[in-house]
Design a protein around this nucleic acid. Structure first.
Lengths: 138, 138
DNA sequence: TTGATTTTGCAACAATATTGCAAATCATGT
DNA sequence: ACATGATTTGCAATATTGTTGCAAAATCAA
């Protein structure tokens, strides 16, 4: 079982109410979260600034990773245990459902290689697939 | 040669100063543009609102497409002639250079197929590669 | 428990995005 | 080329989103 306190300690981060609450929300959520989702879904009310700073701290420590979107929001999702601080292993495909609007990490599906034109040197890659998720397809 | 007036007429859009100017900027730019880039690079000063509305109109008419990013900006780039209104054919790879920070449409590189878990139905897909672009690699 | 360090919340601010409406511009038919 | 109707623009106001400095509070380590 994933435990928010464990995760924080493992990353030598202070264990605070806000960090526990936000991390628990990530653990309980199967999809990805935007800043707005967090503010809405947390019972205890934390300052906007705290949420921003907590997300940034989690990101810098490799606890969560970012997901590219075409609207102007940043989505975050929990990293699997392979992530290290500053060195994300999030090269899995992200799926956005057109119906329920959830963003799901397909951890088993890695982003494939592509052949780039001459001179382009790839360092990181991301892939987002939109469609109907397994839940909604019924 | 791409002509802004042609493009507008082909999409049954009124030919106005702002639309011509913004479309010309897209045509003259090899990379993708954010809203802020447009406001900075247009000599004639249009209202922010006009730029927003123009971008939305272009997007809805399939003249430009959006590029997913992990910062909270929306990038737009010209669609190639295959795009139709409401039905974008922008399934090519986008490259973001870590050095010059330009976003480039690799129109020749199509986003590869991936095998999704059971039940997931893909409809659109996008891929972003970060690294060093051909220009900067010298 | 105490003291040093980190984190939080507040306030102020900056940047970005949206809406309604009147004035200006554009397209169409004559 | 001109008048008319429809569309687009700019302004103002407002909403939303993100950032910074600093004092108070919470956390950690001894």
């Amino acid at each position: 079982m994933l435990d928010s306190i464990d995760i924080l300690k493992r990353n030598t981060l202070s264990v605070t109410e806000s960090r526990k609450a936000i991390l628990d929300l990530f653990i309980d959520t199967d999809g990805a979260l935007a800043h707005a989702d967090i503010e809405k879904n947390i019972s205890n009310d934390f300052d906007r600034v705290t949420v921003y700073r907590t997300l940034q701290t989690f990101f810098e420590n490799g606890i969560i990773h970012q997901i590219p979107t075409t609207d102007n929001t940043v989505l975050y999702a929990l990293c699997k245990d392979k992530c290290e601080a500053g060195h994300h292993h999030d090269e899995h495909v992200h799926f956005i459902c057109n119906l329920c609007d959830k963003t799901i990490c397909l951890d088993e599906v890695t982003v494939p290689q592509v052949k780039l034109p001459k001179g382009f040197k790839p360092l990181q890659k991301a892939m987002v697939v939109k469609g109907i998720c397994a839940e909604c397809k019924n």
